[in-house]
Design a protein around this nucleic acid. Structure first.
Lengths: 230, 230
DNA sequence: CAGAATTAGTGTACATAATACACTAAGCAT
DNA sequence: ATGCTTAGTGTATTATGTACACTAATTCTG
């Protein structure tokens, strides 16, 4: 019923393959704004344009591993929250030819990294998402917009904010992060009530004592794992 | 500051490329169960195993286009709801070599397709998700589990169910779909109240008159576009 | 044609969650 | 001691979610 040729495996060496890259969107909160790490390109195409850190997928690496590796190689950042975002495959997204990219999305506390010590320090920089030029390399503008949207959707119904904060933090810091990401002002009492009723955070015995005002109690997330509701 | 070689574009023809495929998860509701279209493999690897429809990404197609094309070529299905699900890239997922797959997720009303007329009719079949053998080809078991989870998360806060129903439907049908996907029993009055208050559906003037019982009013979704809350 | 069988359709009381809103507390600087 | 700054708290109202049981309209059967 089937010819012999049909049951043999398809020869993968004979098909035309696209290049595959991994792109990492690194978000943090600084100076009251959502910022993203961009790299000023020194290579064609898009020399001089800002772009997201990314690289060709190493042939033996899993996608998640590759994302971690790129993150580390370009920024020196290690051990942070990473999740797969989306795969972008417009045939025209790269002028060199067919390159599909698997985008990842990372979060970290702003002070936990020093980009000036990054391997690609001369070219890597934090840029506020709201100030982005429309002329980013490739389709990176679209990727950033997609990631910012994901963050917005996730912050209210998960403990994802833990990845943007130090171990211990003030409720006012947590609130500020929500306000920036959601781009809205929240009521202090209602915010606190909600956060505590969700049981994702708990008070510690420590206080934050800087500034000429009453010290603030420090809280921590109850778990380091990602928890999502709905 | 930079050598000439650094500013030239990287030569994409010299890198080692993984193969890229597109896999489509086609869900529907039948006989009170969530079912998925599987294809019995006639080629190595995994001859005789059930697998999701999929194929190598045609080098000139966008990912979405490729998913549509695969769907049509293997099942004859056209014009249905499709969304990108996730990209699976475990280096060992395909015994032939490195193949990463971009998985898509499709929904359609069970009666809108006749698999016996599909191009791959001899090998394509609807299989209830709960009855799946653990021995599916590749990592397809994992892909199906991931897709079922996505469906579960989406059904309560979007109008995605419209893709599983005909144009006009009974509220009892809609409720049944929710119950199957969420794997729970819902209260009829509360369900109706909620559905109507969300303003995603509206009554039509038509009734469903089959069976020895009171006719049921038919409803329709207010919009054909995907709407998601939070 | 009366009664049984079947699915459709409806309302109310209660509990929980979301919102609006303003003052007191604790520390530091002068 | 006073003023400045951020931390911290409660209550009333509204909206949303949940629990729960009977009547309505049709077909089938005897």
């Amino acid at each position: 019923m089937y010819t012999n040729s049909e049951i043999k495996p398809r020869d993968l060496s004979k098909i035309e393959k696209p290049a595959v890259s991994v792109t990492v969107l690194i978000f943090s909160i600084n100076d009251g704004r959502l910022e993203v790490v961009l790299i000023n390109r020194v290579r064609e195409p898009f020399v001089g344009f800002w772009s997201l850190p990314g690289d060709i997928l190493p042939i033996k690496n899993d996608l998640d591993e590759a994302a971690k590796k790129i993150l580390f190689d370009k920024t020196g950042i290690k051990n942070i929250y990473l999740e797969q975002l989306y795969t972008f495959g417009d045939p025209k997204r790269d002028p060199r030819g067919r390159v599909i990219t698997v985008a990842y999305f990372a979060l970290l506390p702003y002070n936990s990294v020093d980009l000036s010590k990054a391997p690609d320090a001369l070219h890597a920089k934090w840029i506020p998402v709201k100030n982005l030029s429309t002329n980013l390399a490739f389709d990176h503008k679209k990727i950033i917009a997609y990631g910012a949207e994901r963050l917005k959707n996730k912050i209210e119904y998960s403990n994802i904010a833990r990845a943007l904060l130090p171990e211990k933090f003030r409720l006012s810091e947590l609130q500020k992060i929500h306000e920036i990401i959601l781009n809205t002002k929240l009521d202090k009492r209602n915010f606190r009530k909600r956060m505590l009723s969700m049981k994702l955070i708990e008070p510690t015995k420590d206080f934050y004592r800087l500034g000429n005002h009453r010290p603030a109690r420090l809280y921590k997330f109850s778990t380091k794992k990602l928890v999502t509701f709905n």
